[in-house]
């Protein structure tokens, strides 16, 4: 496992936060920073109770909550096809997959909560449009073949991004990612299998598969984020051992994998400029429309308002249920306390 040596803090220096309560604030900060720097240098892990720089906490909170939101919003385009899945086996697989995504959201919200923000607050931010999620989910899932293309390309890109995150320096995030990656790997396989079946099916099915690959290819490549020379936060994240490889590096690896796999599928990538550069030993692809990326990011994508509205509706419709559960739990706690008192 990639994260095998990262499960514990370094054995040599003790975490400083408890021992020096009598020291001044500045000294505590300095000790904390020194400890943090050693953890980074040793490529080890920071845990929730360790001192960490405010900017590190903020960056992680933003990244993990965005990741959680992406899982939750990402349920929608696929949930859209559960009721129409064309065989009962596919229906079962799709249900299980969308359910997994809810589970991923739960782990990630929990990981983010260890940094000091509540899930309710994160959910409120999402619904208020203050928090971001992966832009890819603002594209519509128009045909059954999109279930294949999303699994193969979107989950495939997510895996390339996420496998290195299993080694992220923040413990709860890295550990959540280990489990998520196992399930994502399975999701990608089911997407590949859907496309393979369609590609070997009727002409109409094959065309449906190619059309879906054509529509999802470029948005999937853009999931890795802007080109390295236009990605201001990447450098700091790499210094903090959160991010391990640059956006372009990961994108290039992903293209290389897809080139191989699309041949097995009997389909093509909608990109005539894909090639392996013998000099750099890297895969290259044709130009991407970064204006479109920025437009979708800015809220002007095909489904931005639809996705948020759906989340808001579910949240609002469920408010009375959550209130009832909280009220019931409080009443039960009071009852139990009275019983204990009487006994």
């Amino acid at each position: 496992m990639a994260a095998q040596n990262l499960q514990s803090v370094p054995d040599q220096p003790a975490a400083p936060q408890e021992a020096n309560a009598t020291k001044g604030q500045d000294q505590r900060e300095a000790d904390g920073q020194a400890y943090f720097d050693r953890v980074m240098a040793d490529d080890s892990r920071i845990e929730p109770k360790d001192w960490m720089p405010a900017a590190y906490r903020k960056t992680l909170l933003r990244q993990i909550s965005q990741h959680a939101h992406s899982e939750i919003i990402g349920m929608q385009p696929e949930a859209n096809w559960i009721s129409r899945a064309p065989s009962l086996k596919r229906k079962a697989i799709l249900m299980a997959k969308v359910q997994d995504e809810a589970g991923h959201g739960l782990y990630l919200y929990s990981a983010a909560e260890t940094l000091g923000q509540s899930r309710d607050q994160m959910m409120d931010d999402l619904i208020a449009g203050k928090a971001r999620y992966s832009s890819i989910f603002n594209y519509p899932a128009l045909t059954w073949a999109d279930m294949g293309a999303i699994g193969w390309l979107v989950d495939g890109a997510a895996i390339c991004n996420q496998v290195p995150l299993c080694r992220a320096s923040y413990g709860p995030y890295g550990r959540a990612m280990v489990r998520i990656c196992k399930e994502e790997s399975f999701h990608q396989r089911q997407g590949f299998e859907i496309l393979l079946e369609l590609s070997n099916g009727t002409p109409a099915q094959k065309q449906m598969a190619q059309d879906a690959v054509n529509r999802w290819y470029a948005p999937a490549l853009m999931m890795f984020g802007p080109p390295d020379d236009d990605s201001p936060n990447s450098k700091q994240s790499m210094a903090w051992n959160i991010k391990r490889f640059s956006n372009d590096e990961l994108r290039s690896r992903f293209v290389g994998m897809m080139v191989e796999q699309v041949r097995v599928l009997g389909l093509t990538l909608p990109d005539s400029e894909v090639r392996f550069n013998e000099d750099t030993k890297k895969w290259e692809h044709g130009p991407l429309d970064w204006n479109e990326f920025k437009e979708v990011l800015a809220g002007r994508g095909p489904c931005n308002s639809q996705r948020l509205e759906r989340r808001r509706e579910a949240h609002d419709d469920g408010a009375w249920v959550r209130e009832a559960a909280a009220s019931y739990a409080a009443k039960q706690a009071r009852k139990n306390a009275q019983k204990e008192y009487a006994a």
Binding site: I72, I82, L88, K91, M95, A102, D317, R322, A325
Partner: peptide, 29 residues
């Protein structure tokens, strides 16, 4: 029940109702 997945009052219920739907679908199959 499958319709509840992504629409439940709480994420835990998305998972729970999804599970029940999957069980029922398994029995149906």
């Amino acid at each position: 029940l499958g319709h509840w997945i992504s629409r439940a009052p709480e994420l835990e219920e998305d998972v729970a109702l999804g599970n029940i739907a999957l069980d029922q679908l398994g029995h149906a199959r």
